[in-house]
Design a binder for these strands. Structure first.
Lengths: 145, 145
DNA sequence: AACCGAATTAGACAGAGTCCAATTCGTATT
DNA sequence: AATACGAATTGGACTCTGTCTAATTCGGTT
């Protein structure tokens, strides 16, 4: 039984996915999408660049940034802002939250299905929610400092 | 009746507050604390610098950053990471969450007392929670695009 | 007034991300 | 197969936030 998690991404079905989001699927864009979707990880722009250019340099920094911003705009991916010095890009656009391990920088998903948040104030009028992030920052417990 | 909100901060009582947190209260540190605590706002490092140097230049960039990081370390203030290109510093260390207006960059507090979150997973063993942020991103609703 | 450690400083530096004008790519047309 | 054209990509300069460092200054003590 194929679950979301084990779904196989190919260059071909990613090209299809890009088109479905109104993105012209070029080589570079497909490679960047592949980097993000084939692993289940949150990557920073420079990690994406490193992966895409592993064999030999193929994609420039400008294109990596252009493409990630295009993907964001078209809601193909999400950005996660947890670390002051870099943005993470998240291929999972289902509702979910994050746990951030401060020492290691590891970022993991928390399924939103189980989480209930109550008691939030009503929005100022004329405002709509664009999204809600919940970030739990954790660190290794220290043996009695 | 003096509420938290209307509490008057003076250079003198701020010096006391710094000492209480184990911080040697120098001129620059007092000015920076005053900038943060006398307004009820979230400021970025360069906003702090601009305020402190309003009359004529008195405090260097290095000192502003040193001091903000010292305040953070001593838990006098909190950092809020909502915007990919700058960190905000928050003089309110009571438990609370944030609403971030994407267009204007305005950041406002949401009192934590009213908010309940249930269904969060248990932490990986050997990990302790350092803090939980909830950020609600809002934008002006557009009249039928 | 001399001393000493702590704090501050200017300015060089680092890293993430943006911008721009020039080039190249892909596709359609003939 | 050659041409044309708009879209995408590129290198590199640039900006901005934040850090580092070695030299200087400050403030409190004797």
């Amino acid at each position: 039984m194929a679950t979301m998690e084990s779904e196989q991404y190919t260059r071909d079905n990613l090209a299809e996915k890009l088109r479905a989001h109104g993105i012209n699927p070029t080589h570079q864009r497909i490679e960047i999408a592949f980097a993000l979707f084939s692993r289940h990880e949150h990557l920073s722009a420079d990690q994406v660049m490193a992966i895409v250019n592993e064999r030999h340099s193929e994609t420039s920094k400008a294109t990596v940034y252009n493409t990630l911003n295009l993907f964001l705009e078209k809601k193909l991916i999400r950005e996660v802002i947890v670390d002051p010095n870099k943005v993470f890009y998240d291929p999972n656009t289902e509702p979910h939250y994050h746990m951030y391990e401060l020492e290691s920088g590891r970022l993991t998903d928390i399924d939103a299905a189980d989480v209930r948040v109550t008691g939030l104030p009503t929005l100022p009028s004329g405002m709509v929610t664009e999204g809600m992030d919940i970030i739990i920052r954790v660190r290794p417990s220290e043996p009695a400092r």
